[in-house]
């Protein structure tokens, strides 16, 4: 095994997982301009729904996946309609929404523990086996799928934001809400869509992460921190950038640990975040006008 190849592959796997979380988070941020940290729990809810449907009830896997995606989208829409929208209607500032999103995260994390208990759960669809040898590095088929899906997401999101009517409307709202409503774009409708699509992506992340890692109620916090860091590195309001930033984060963590003690692994992400913000406050691919709000 070549160490370099393996570290690259490890970085890609980690990055792809971060990207799955970052994509939805960033999409929601870009149109709504607040930090939806509860996105982390949307992912976990997705994973637990898959676990209940497939592992507990025994619904066929692909059907269970489709249902998971639907539930996740509804869950995201629900958080928006029932929590954020009423707050926004009362002119709550974005910091209040941030605290509310953390409240939602704590709430559902513990609801999940009440229902499923604190133990590790495993979906058990894929048997753990020694991975394939690709250019001297070892990787499992599922991990290849995860990386491919992340890359596909990157392309699709890019096309969606550039080409589709809805994507262009979203960008318009993201750039300037007032101007967008003058142009006849209903920003509440756009916000609905951003939560539906963003949480759909959380469902995708929940399924894949649920298969790759195991499930426990507290996993959402770690996931959202990493996804969020990836998103920031790539430019928080620019979705394809969030995906690239996540890959960059995964690779940076892995290569730095090559020569640093592994206790610094999590710190690398934050040192990187800090440096990026100082040198390039809009993230690698960000658009400049966001800073001077």
């Amino acid at each position: 095994m070549s160490l370099l190849a393996q570290l690259t592959v490890n970085g890609l796997i980690a990055g792809a997982i971060y990207a799955l979380v970052a994509a939805g988070f960033s999409l929601i941020y870009s149109t709504n301009k607040f930090m939806h940290f509860a996105h982390g729990i949307s992912v976990v809810v997705g994973a637990y729904i898959l676990y209940s449907l497939f592992s507990l009830i025994g619904i066929p896997f692909y059907l269970a996946c489709i249902l998971t995606l639907i539930f996740s989208s509804l869950f995201g829409l629900g958080t928006y309609r029932l929590m954020y929208l009423p707050l926004q209607n009362k002119k709550a500032s974005n910091v209040v929404l941030l605290i509310a999103s953390i409240g939602v995260l704590i709430l559902f994390q513990n609801v999940i523990q009440l229902i499923f208990g604190p133990d590790v759960k495993s979906v058990g669809y894929i048997k753990v086996a020694r991975g394939l040898n690709v250019f001297g590095a070892i990787i499992t088929p599922l991990q290849i799928v995860i990386i491919l899906i992340s890359i596909t997401l990157f392309v699709l999101l890019y096309l969606f934001m550039k080409k589709s009517k809805l994507g262009r409307d979203m960008r318009a709202v993201s750039d300037n809400k007032e101007l967008a409503s003058i142009m006849g774009i209903n920003h509440k409708r756009i916000a609905d869509y951003s939560f539906i699509i963003g949480s759909f992506l959380a469902g995708v992340a929940g399924i894949l992460i649920g298969l790759e890692q195991n499930l426990n109620p507290t996993m959402g916090t770690i996931l959202i921190i990493k996804g969020f860091t990836g998103a920031v590195i790539g430019g928080v309001g620019f979705i394809p950038g969030a995906v690239l930033g996540s890959f960059l984060l995964g690779l940076a963590e892995n290569f730095s640990i090559w020569f640093l003690p592994s206790g610094y692994k999590d710190a690398i992400a934050f040192v990187l975040l800090f440096i990026f913000l100082l040198l390039k406050p809009t993230g690698l691919f960000g658009i400049n006008k966001d800073v001077k709000k």
Binding site: V232, G263, Y264, A267, L273, F274, L277, V291, K293
Partner: peptide
């Protein structure tokens, strides 16, 4: 001094990053 060019959410992110860096130093 380090974050003087940042505002709003970006300042929030940088200061959050700062607290994580201090935490890792304490830890490591």
């Amino acid at each position: 001094l380090a974050t003087r060019k940042l505002k709003g959410d970006y300042l929030a992110l940088a200061t959050l990053g700062f607290s994580f860096v201090i935490y890792s130093l304490m830890l490591n």
